[in-house]
Write a protein that binds this DNA or RNA. Structure first.
Lengths: 250, 250
DNA sequence: AAGTGGTCTAGACCACTCC
DNA sequence: GAGTGGTCTAGACCACTTG
C-alpha cells in the first residue's frame, strides 16, 4: 500500500504535531469504545479487517490493540478474536477493591444500603466530581460486611446527569461498576485513591459496632470513565481489625 | 538464519515446556541483570549485537527489551542506546513512597535514625524475610519528617546476610534503596504493601508529638529483589493529618 | 556520517477455536 | 478446513544522539 493513505498522518510527516500511526489508530479505536460504537463483550473485527479499513498494515493495528489490551480495554483470545473488556464482578473486585484479609487474600464483601437519594451538590462534591455547584447528585450510604461482620461504611456521590433514575427503585448490585457499564455504558477505567487514618465518628462507630474514635482506614476515591470524566466520588471507612488494604508496587 | 539455532528452543517445538523465543531471551537477559553482569546505568549492546549473539532476529530481541522496559528494568533512549534502569532517589521515591499532601502532591521526607543495630530474627521477622529463625538481622528505627514536622515512625528489618556491615558506621541515605543498589548490587523491583489503621502506641505518639491512641496509617511492606527474594521488612506508622497515601488504580 | 532506538510494512508459520 | 490471534523474521525508513 501507499504509506499513510487514508486520513491518518504518515510516519514521514515532519509536521510538529506528529504522532506514530499506531497511536493514531489506538486513539481512533478508543474513541469508538468511548462512543459506545463497540460495547463491553463485543467482538472486534479481525486485525486484517481493521488494517484494511484504516489503510495500515496488520502489524500497526496489532501494536495499537496490544497497547489497549495492556490498558485493560480489550481482551484477546487466540483463535477467537479480540473483545471489548467486560468489567464484570470479577474484574471490578480485583481491580478496584483492594481490601484483603491480614494475609493478603482477597475478600468479597456484601452490601447493605442505608440511605439513597437525590440532592444538590455541595461545594466539595462539585469540586471532586467536576460538576456545577448545586447540580443534582445521587447519594448512597451503605455498609459492607465480610462474612457477616460489618467492616466498611461507605458514602458515594454520583452526578445525576450521568446516571438518571438511579436514585430510587432500581436494585443496586454489590459492585456498582458493573451496573454503570451494563445500564449506562460507562466504563470505569481508572481510580485515584487517597488513604488516611481517621477516628470513627459516632454514627460510623455505631454502624460498624465499634467504640467511638476507633482508628479507621479512610479511602477517598475518585473513579474516572474512559474519557477521563469523574463519575463517582466515594469515601470508604474501613475497620482494619481482620482486614487490610493490599497493593503491589512494581 | 536457521530458526532456533543456538541453545534457545524454537517456536516450532511442540515439546510441553515450550516458551516463546522472546520470553526466553528476556529470561536470559534478566538473569544477567540479577547476576550483576550488567549493573544499573550500564549501556547494553545494541539490538543487532544482541540478536547476532543470541542467534535470533532483531525484532525478537526488541520484544524482549520492550517488555523489560515496561517492567522498569531498562531505559531506552533513542539515538543513545538501552540502559539498565537506575533506581535513583527520584525513582525510589516516586515508585515506592506513596505519601503525598492532602491534594495528592508528592512529598519528600527527611529521616532521622533513632536506633540501629544487629540482632537475631524473631519468628515474625524470619517468616516475613524468609530466613532462618535466629538468623542475624539488622534493625533500624527512624523518624521521617516533612518540612520539619515528624510524621512517620518506621521500623526496618534487613537480613544481615544480604547487607553485611550495614548495621553500624556507614552513613544511611534518605532513600535506603539507592544504597542497596549502589553498595550491594541489590535492586528492589517490587514491594508488597498492606495498609491498616492503628492507634498510636505511647512511644510512637511521643516521637510524632501526638496524643496516645491517635489514629495512624500503618504500612507493612515487604520489598523484593529482582529475583523475588525478600530483602526488607518495613513497618511505617504515618500521621495522616496533612498527608495521605495516594495510589492510582488503572 | 555513523550508530542507535522507533515505526511501519510484508510475509511466513504456529497454536487455538469453531464449524 | 477456515479464521483468529501469537510468534518470528527481514528489510525499509525515520528521529535522535554523538562525533
Amino acid at each position: 500500500m501507499v504509506r499513510g493513505m487514508s486520513n491518518l498522518a504518515t510516519q514521514a510527516s515532519t509536521i510538529p504535531g506528529f504522532r506514530p500511526l499506531y497511536k493514531q489508530v489506538k486513539e481512533l479505536l478508543v474513541e469508538r469504545l468511548i462512543g459506545g460504537f463497540w460495547k463491553p463483550g463485543d467482538l472486534l473485527p479481525s486485525e486484517f479487517q481493521l488494517a484494511a479499513e484504516l489503510g495500515v498494515s496488520q502489524g500497526t493495528v496489532r501494536k495499537a490493540l496490544d497497547e489497549m489490551t495492556a490498558d485493560n480495554l480489550l481482551v484477546r483470545r487466540q483463535g477467537r478474536g479480540t473483545f471489548v473488556a467486560e468489567h464484570d464482578q470479577e474484574h471490578a473486585l480485583f481491580h478496584f477493591f483492594k481490601m484483603t484479609d491480614r494475609e493478603g487474600q482477597p475478600l468479597v464483601p456484601e452490601s447493605r444500603v442505608l440511605r439513597r437519594g437525590l440532592g444538590t451538590a455541595r461545594k466539595d462534591e462539585a469540586a471532586r466530581l467536576q460538576i456545577q455547584a448545586e447540580a443534582p447528585v445521587i447519594r448512597i450510604t451503605r455498609v459492607r460486611s465480610i462474612s457477616g461482620k460489618p467492616v466498611i461504611f461507605e458514602r458515594i456521590a454520583l452526578p445525576y446527569q450521568l446516571f438518571p433514575e438511579l436514585h430510587d427503585g432500581r436494585e443496586l448490585p454489590n459492585t456498582l461498576y458493573t451496573l454503570f457499564a451494563r445500564d449506562y455504558g460507562i466504563t470505569v477505567g481508572k481510580a485515584l485513591e487517597r488513604l488516611r487514618a481517621v477516628p470513627a465518628s459516632p454514627e460510623v462507630a455505631r454502624q460498624l459496632d465499634l467504640e467511638r474514635d476507633h482508628p479507621l482506614l479512610e479511602i477517598d476515591r475518585i473513579a474516572l470513565a474512559l474519557d477521563g470524566r469523574p463519575v463517582e466520588w466515594r469515601i470508604s471507612l474501613c475497620h482494619t481489625g481482620d482486614t487490610a488494604y493490599s497493593v503491589t508496587l512494581a
